[in-house]
Design a protein around this nucleic acid. Structure first.
Lengths: 167, 167
DNA sequence: CTTCATGCAAACTGTTTGCAGAGAC
DNA sequence: GTCTCTGCAAACAGTTTGCATGAAG
């Protein structure tokens, strides 16, 4: 995909901000560029570890922190207590998340209705004025039940259908 | 405020789902009803601890889990790795969050533009159809810089502010 | 050659669990 | 009286930190 392009951008960003371009940094950006989903630190570590067992988990964390700081990636917690990561909109364009409260499946939602940007734009301006906030980004999450979970549940107890359930 | 009403509701919810109504449970619901902001478990513990030092942190966690399970409260992580809680929309009506990326201040945003519900409603239906999702809830978060942080930064280091706002 | 980045191990911190005793119904 | 809830302490898991070594520029 846009791997080449993104990689170049990131190296520029590293350099422009006084950070060195190193193997772990390139690998992690590359992984996040090619992966689908929202891996957590350990998942990233395990995948990189296959080909580069010399790279430690600590480096993964430090690199992820750096990438967040440089706005290259976003950090999320969808409710399971794990920090999850994905390329930021700088690289991918806006998209949002649809999360199944039961199986914790996360779907990226990327359709852009023409009206949407208008609406969010206006909302952003309103809020910006009212609260004196320089808004730079937004997220929308939809919570619900995916088809599979919906059908696999004969009786939907109150307890089962909970968003953010960490059990 | 709506404390009485909410409390009654919650006790009903406890009972209907086979849970007992206990002091810690009532205290925690009451606290979350009256507090502004999005306290984490420890903050809740400390506040309750003042008057009820016999109630332990474990109970706080277990009660919060229960309340989430019963949809009485929502659990969030705004990026600092702490689980934070607030009454769910069942009790408070929809609202969303504006988060300062620097000082982590969180503002509840509650204005409802008439068009908004329409828009979200339509979006929800679209998504519901397209992804076969039974959507039950949504969240919107705006990220940015609050007035104070914005002005308190004489020199905006690259790392602090997004130098990549050329989206 | 200087300075930043890394790896390891150990520390930290928020959260969860096992178990015996206390409390709700 | 029964069965759930609670408190304590100890275990866990994800993440961070200190320090010596290694690599980037």
């Amino acid at each position: 995909m846009g791997e080449g392009k993104i990689k170049v951008d990131c190296e520029e960003i590293f350099k422009k901000n006084g950070y060195r371009v190193t193997l772990p940094r390139r690998l992690i950006v590359q992984l996040l560029t090619n992966v689908t989903g929202h891996p957590n630190a350990k998942e990233i570590y395990l995948r990189i570890n296959k080909k580069h067992p010399e790279i430690g988990l600590t480096t993964i964390y430090r690199t992820l922190d750096l990438l967040v700081k440089l706005h290259i990636i976003n950090k999320f917690d969808f409710g399971d207590g794990l920090a999850r990561y994905e390329l930021s909109s700088i690289c991918t364009g806006h998209h949002h998340h649809i999360i199944c409260s039961r199986c914790c499946q996360i779907i990226d939602y990327n359709d852009s209705f023409g009206e949407k940007e208008d609406y969010i734009q206006r909302l952003q301006e309103e809020i910006s004025k009212k609260y004196n906030f320089a808004i730079s980004d937004h997220e929308i999450q939809f919570y619900g039940t995916c088809e599979k979970c919906y059908h696999s549940t004969v009786e939907v107890g109150v307890e089962e259908a909970s968003p953010f359930s960490t059990l």
